[in-house]
Structure formats: structure tokens, C-alpha cells
Design a protein around this nucleic acid. Structure first.
Lengths: 193, 193
DNA sequence: TTAAATTCTTAATATACCTTAACTCCTTTG
DNA sequence: CAAAGGAGTTAAGGTATATTAAGAATTTAA
């Protein structure tokens, strides 16, 4: 397991000394996950935030009718967790599964909390990570409120072309908040126009 | 204009020395806004993040059919801005208006950037602010995807009882992503059951 | 390599929510 | 205080999207 990618990810925002880099890496728990394996289940304590080295993860929620709502896809170089439950030490609301075989690293809540105290530079790093995540979700809320299903689909295609290649339409539909049948019919109309 | 409230807001997460407090306060621009006044318009540069001392603000987006989508309400003790445009120095996508006469303080982007460098403790503070904002938006996305209009309405009533008292139903409807007419009909059914 | 399972598609029917419109009740403002 | 505009309500009719079901295509697993 190479840590280049995650160190680059961090170096985009803060500069670590070699010692700080080593300390940070010592906290990481690398993990290889097989396609369809779950790294988090609803109801479990969510103790880890994950960085995706390669592969792709998907976080989803199951509603009372067992319908899936995809909350996010995490490609290579993304961070993912059930943030509410991670921060508040609550049982997870989300499932996180590997869409493809993936290589990830986990960082435990207690280790992160201590890291933020010992190396306060990381506060800046995670401020930026959280800020970007907030902005992403806010843009999604805006689109959910003001675009039709078809418009959201096209926006998704242009915003996440890499994800489109790696996940099923059923999963894209559950991200957009529509049924796979309706997504299928949208594609037909697109070809016709 | 008293700065107790905003200092308490900050003291909930970090400890400032008296000197740091004074420095921080020197960066703030207090402003009294009248009901219905806009403090940000779509297309303007969004140079400020605002803290609400008293009153209530509303951020909304206008879609291509001039339909409003309410993105957030900010009560007393909340922070609000068009985060994407604030961070990226882009023209705003959002309008921010005062729902009632409000007393707010603005903090300019350039002053915040410098503050984060001069007093790095603020990185922790804004990390927590961004984190909470991210969690809020993510919960909203989950609800938008998995609840019916009626369920979202009831959830809103219990989550933001204070907001319910201060804004119109039209504004609540535009937050929920439904028409005021439909919200009105939901209330009738609730009474009947 | 085949059987089983899952995904994708198509189409008919159903429904949650929208649109329009008309009326009442408030609130704002001159 | 009167007039005008906006907010809330109700109801009829319309549309975007869901549901159900069945067959075809693809993937998974034995």
C-alpha cells in the first residue's frame, strides 16, 4: 500500500514536515475491500472516516420501504463517511459499500481528534474538506429543488463522467431520486430529440 | 451593537485571549437590515459571510422560471452566506434577504483569510462550522430523497419550530420543494386525520 | 459453461404533486 | 382610513414521475 496519493491530497492544502507525514501515516489503517462488501452498516457505530485510494465506494440510506437513496459516490482521492454519526458517535444511518474492488485507508475518530490537537495544521485541512463537502451538498439541494429529473440526470452526466462509467443506472437513479424505470425512459427520449 | 452573542458563539468551540477577541471584533461590520431588504443579489460578488445577531435571514435561488427555492433560513446565532461563491470569489447564485428587521455582522473574505493565518485557532472554529453545515445539508438530501412532501413538512415543523413562527407558508413550501397550494392542502388533511 | 440472479427496457396504469383560477383574509402603504 | 398587493385556501384539471409486470440483456456464481 502506497501513501503517495493521500499525501498529495493533503499537500494540496497544507505543508507537513516529514515527521508529521510519518505520524499521520502511522494512524492510517489500510484495507482492501471486495466489490459489494459493506464497510459500514446502518446501526453500527461509525468510528472511521475513509480515504479512497483506488476503486469506488457508495453511501446509501434505506428508507422505511427498503428503498435505497444514494447519498454519495466516492471515487479515488475522495474522503467518505457517515459524517453525522462519525462526529457525534451515533449509530450509522448509512450503508457504505464498495461498488468495485477498492483500496482504502481508514482513520479512526479518536486518532483524528488527537491529531487535530497535536498537529493543528490539520484543522485547516479538514476545514477545507468540510467546506468543499458543504458546498457540494448545497449545490445538490439547489438542483434537487429547481431542476427536473431529466435536467438532474444531464447535470450528473457532465459533473461525474467517471462515476457514470463505474456504477449501474439503478445506482444513478437512486442518487437522482427517481426510479430506474423512469431513468431508462429518460434516456430514450434523449436519443429521440 | 453588542458583540456578546458572537463571542459566545465562538467560545463554544475555541478559547480566545482578550487581544484576539478585540482583533476579531475589529474585523466585523455591523449592519441593520430592514425587513425584505436584500443583503446579497444573484450575480453580485459575494464578499461577506454574515452572522445573525437578531432577526432572521433567508437564502434563496431563482430558477429559469423565476421560481424561488429556499436554501436556508438563518435565525439568531447562525452564520450564512452563498458559500460556493464566497469561497471561490464567484458571482452569487443566491439572494439573501431579511425576513424580519435584523441585526447582523459581516466578515469580509479577505479579512477572514488573513484571520485564519494570523490566528490559526479560527481554523478549528470554521472547521466545526463547515462540518455542521455539511451534516445539515446531508440530512436534508437524505430527507429529500426518502420522504414524501408531507413527511418533510412534519419534520420541518419539529426541527425548526422557531422558523415556523417567523416565516410565511410560501417560504416554507419553497424550502420543502413544493407549491404553497399543495402545502395548504397537506395541512387540511393533517387536521382531518 | 451453464443456471441463477440482477439489471435494463418497455408499456400500461396509477398517483403525488403542479397549474390555474377564483375567493377571502391580512398586511402594507399612501 | 382606503386601496392595493400579497398570502392563504379550495377545487378542477393536468403532468411528471411511480408502480407493476413481463421480457431481454447482462453479470454472477456454481
Amino acid at each position: 500500500m502506497a501513501y503517495d496519493l493521500i499525501l498529495q491530497n493533503i499537500a494540496r492544502h497544507i505543508n507537513l514536515t516529514p515527521g508529521e507525514q510519518d505520524h499521520f501515516i502511522s494512524l492510517l489503517k489500510p484495507e482492501e475491500v471486495k466489490k459489494k462488501a459493506l464497510i459500514l452498516r446502518e446501526g453500527q457505530l461509525c468510528n472511521n472516516i475513509y480515504y479512497v485510494n483506488s476503486g469506488i465506494l457508495r453511501a446509501y440510506h434505506l428508507d422505511k420501504d427498503a428503498k435505497e437513496a444514494t447519498i454519495m459516490f466516492a471515487l479515488s482521492d475522495w474522503w467518505i463517511t457517515d459524517m453525522f454519526c462519525f462526529i457525534n458517535c451515533q449509530p450509522a444511518m448509512l450503508f457504505i459499500e464498495a461498488v468495485e474492488n477498492s483500496s482504502i485507508v481508514g482513520l479512526q475518530k479518536k486518532d483524528l481528534d488527537q491529531l487535530l490537537i497535536e498537529v493543528p495544521k490539520f484543522e485547516r485541512f479538514f476545514r477545507i474538506i468540510m467546506q468543499n463537502a458543504y458546498i457540494r451538498e448545497q449545490l445538490r439541494v439547489i438542483q434537487n429543488l429547481s431542476l427536473s429529473a431529466e435536467e438532474r440526470y444531464h447535470s450528473f452526466l457532465t459533473k461525474y463522467p467517471q462515476v457514470v462509467k463505474q456504477v449501474t443506472q439503478k445506482q444513478i437513479a437512486s442518487y437522482l431520486g427517481i426510479t430506474p424505470e423512469f431513468l431508462s425512459s429518460l434516456k430514450v427520449n434523449k436519443t429521440k430529440n
